[in-house]
């Protein structure tokens, strides 16, 4: 067991997977000598060299598109998109190509590829370095979307993602890179894709979250516990395929569901969670499925007062919990 920051867990996993499997390569912008703008790939170039740690030109579509081709021809690329905000030039390659390859070829071709991208706000990143973009991608059949919240999960899920035979989009909340620490075993464990975790048991309200919000949900649960509200927190970990069983089991037990997500509220991932709960746990509900989410402005504003206004935080989640508890 060793204490690791979130980004240390990512970096270690990349290095370990590259040592374990010579078909694993890393490519992206500044991932080489510099080791990535967040240092997620620091040291990889020195250990594995030019062939396996590739600094690409500023070409997101190529980073993903060439990864697709490399995956088809025997490699397991781990592509880094420098910020999730910059992933959209690659959207066509992700949507039309990577995610459809297996289906459209009737299992003739698969794309074992992982795309890592830092996302999220609260770091003074403004409109184009703060976005939560998961909803654009969770809509896509054929694409797995993972958002871990702890170093343990980051490591276990990244291993699973790299070893998976289908494309996996792996979002890492950049505010967590150095602020979140946790114990990580020295073993070659994996955390399976598609499995949520109940990170706090409770009886009255289920709070569903992922990424940074999974931490804020736990903080909010502690706050309202002192007020006598018993909250269960479900950390989804994999957004798609979603672990409906863990989600629905929790909601059927508590009878109330609040979804916390940082993305814009309208059409965000929480909307799908809400729909699933409404459709499949309606008979058990004691109150409206509720969303605590980012406001519907086109991005996170820069000024710290405006940024604080945008960001979902433990206080906002706690307020939502109190309101729902009183319903």
């Amino acid at each position: 067991m060793a204490l690791r920051t979130f980004i240390e867990a990512i970096r270690e996993t990349l290095a370990e997977e590259m040592r374990r499997d010579p078909s694993v390569i890393v490519l992206g912008e500044d991932v080489g000598k510099k080791g990535g703008v967040f240092l997620a790939t620091d040291g990889l170039w020195a250990e594995f060299g030019d062939d396996r740690v590739i600094d690409t030109p500023l070409t997101e579509s190529l980073i993903v598109g060439a990864s697709i081709g490399a995956a088809v021809n025997g490699l397991r690329p781990v592509a880094e998109i420098q910020f999730a905000d910059f992933i959209f030039p690659a959207f066509n390659q992700i949507l039309s190509e990577a995610s459809r390859m297996r289906y459209r070829s009737n299992n003739g071709f698969g794309v074992p590829m992982t795309i890592r991208a830092p996302y999220g706000g609260g770091v003074h990143g403004a409109l184009y370095h703060s976005q939560s973009v998961e909803a654009f991608f969770t809509h896509i059949p054929g694409l797995k979307v993972v958002i871990p919240s702890t170093p343990y999960d980051a490591k276990g899920l990244l291993r699973s993602a790299i070893r998976d035979d289908d494309p996996v989009l792996f979002f890492e909340h950049k505010k967590m890179y150095r602020s979140v620490r946790g114990d990580v075993p020295d073993t070659d464990y994996t955390v399976p894709l598609g499995r949520a975790a109940v990170t706090h048991e409770g009886k009255q309200i289920t709070v569903v979250a992922y990424g940074l919000m999974a931490h804020y949900a736990l903080e909010a649960a502690d706050v309202v516990a002192d007020e006598g509200i018993s909250v269960e927190v479900v950390d989804l970990r994999t957004l798609r395929p979603i672990d409906k069983e863990t989600l629905l089991t929790s909601v059927r037990k508590t009878g109330k569901c609040l979804v916390a997500y940082e993305d814009n509220r309208f059409g965000g991932y929480g909307a799908e969670v809400s729909a699933i709960v409404a459709e499949e746990a309606f008979d058990y509900l004691d109150g409206p499925v509720t969303r605590i989410a980012g406001p519907d402005v086109p991005g996170v504003p820069y000024n710290h007062v405006l940024e604080d206004w945008f960001m979902v935080n433990p206080e906002k989640i706690a307020a939502g919990i109190r309101k729902l508890a009183a319903y």
Partner: peptide
Amino acid sequence: MLHAVGIALA
């Protein structure tokens, strides 16, 4: 185009 480039890279 990019798939073929990736195949060549591999």
